[in-house]
Amino acid sequence: MHVPPGCERSQAGEYHHVGNPAFRYLAEDDGRTLTLTLARARKDGGVGEAPDAGAITLVLTRTPEGFVGETHATGFSVAGTPCPVKFPTEITACGATTLTLRAVTSTSLDEACRPPPSGPEPKWTEQVLRRGAPPPPQAEAPSSAPDAGVGPTDGGRSGG
């Protein structure tokens, strides 16, 4: 099989999108097929156990041609009709804590939920997912500027 180095090991677990940590994924890996399902974040910061109805799912298989498959999602026709869509997807790298995906990220659909016979070429983009929950939001660092507030005038004693 021709898969990127490191991709032969299990990729099961929880992931988040490096560019947008709100996109959280649950990954199942049986050794041949990796399935990543977009999951909604819970209020406690974890990932929901059950995927949302109509959730985005990536199904990739280790093959002689690479670690390839499709992203399944719901798109909308020009008339606003919900349409099931599939985008070609591949994994191009498996790091110790990351998966790098290459996928077609958009398409046009006609009223019958089909791609039009002519139009722009599909646009491929790279996405990076990091294993584990995303880091907590960064609190603002304390300022090194002097405090402009009024300090105690009694040598720090209180009570009078």
Rank of each mutant, 00 (worst) to 15 (best):
L58H: 08
P64V: 08
L34R: 03
L38Y: 00
L38A: 02
P51L: 13
T61Y: 03
D52Y: 05
V68M: 05
T35W: 00
V68R: 13
G31H: 05
F67E: 06
V68G: 02
L38H: 00
L38Q: 00
A53G: 12
R62G: 02
G45E: 08
L36Q: 07
T63L: 12
I56A: 12
D30C: 10
G69E: 12
H72G: 05
T57Q: 10
G45C: 09
L36D: 07
T57W: 00
R42Y: 06
G48N: 14
D30R: 09
T71V: 07
L34E: 08
F67R: 04
A50V: 15
H72C: 02
V59Q: 13
V68A: 06
A41C: 04
L36V: 07
D44K: 05
P64E: 13
T33G: 05
A50N: 09
K43M: 14
R62A: 04
E65S: 13
E49L: 10
G31E: 05
A39S: 12
A50G: 11
D52M: 14
R42V: 08
L60S: 08
F67W: 06
D52W: 02
P51E: 06
D44C: 09
R62M: 07
R32Y: 00
A41Y: 05
G48Y: 06
T71A: 13
R40A: 10
A50W: 00
T71Y: 01
P64N: 07
A55V: 00
G31Y: 02
E70W: 12
T61G: 03
P51T: 10
T74Q: 14
A50E: 15
D44W: 09
T33Q: 14
D44N: 15
K43W: 08
E65C: 01
L36H: 09
D30P: 05
T37N: 03
H72S: 13
A53W: 02
T63A: 11
G54V: 05
G48P: 02
L60P: 07
G69M: 11
L38R: 00
T35C: 03
T33F: 04
T63F: 08
E70V: 10
D30F: 07
T74H: 04
E65L: 12
G46Y: 09
R62T: 08
E49Q: 13
A53C: 04
I56F: 08
G54Q: 03
V59T: 15
I56R: 14
D30M: 10
A41S: 14
E70G: 07
T61M: 10
L38M: 06
E49S: 13
R62L: 03
T37Y: 00
R42S: 10
V47K: 01
D44M: 09
T57N: 00
A39R: 15
G46V: 06
P64L: 07
L36W: 02
R62E: 01
T37F: 00
T57C: 01
G69N: 11
T63I: 11
T63C: 09
T61R: 12
G46Q: 15
R40K: 14
R32A: 14
A50M: 12
P51R: 10
T37Q: 14
D52A: 15
L60Q: 09
L34Q: 04
G31R: 06
E49W: 01
A73S: 15
K43G: 10
G69V: 09
F67S: 06
G69T: 07
D52N: 13
A39E: 02
L34P: 11
I56P: 02
T61L: 03
G45N: 12
D44Q: 07
L36P: 01
T74P: 03
T71W: 01
L58P: 00
A55S: 02
D44I: 11
V59A: 12
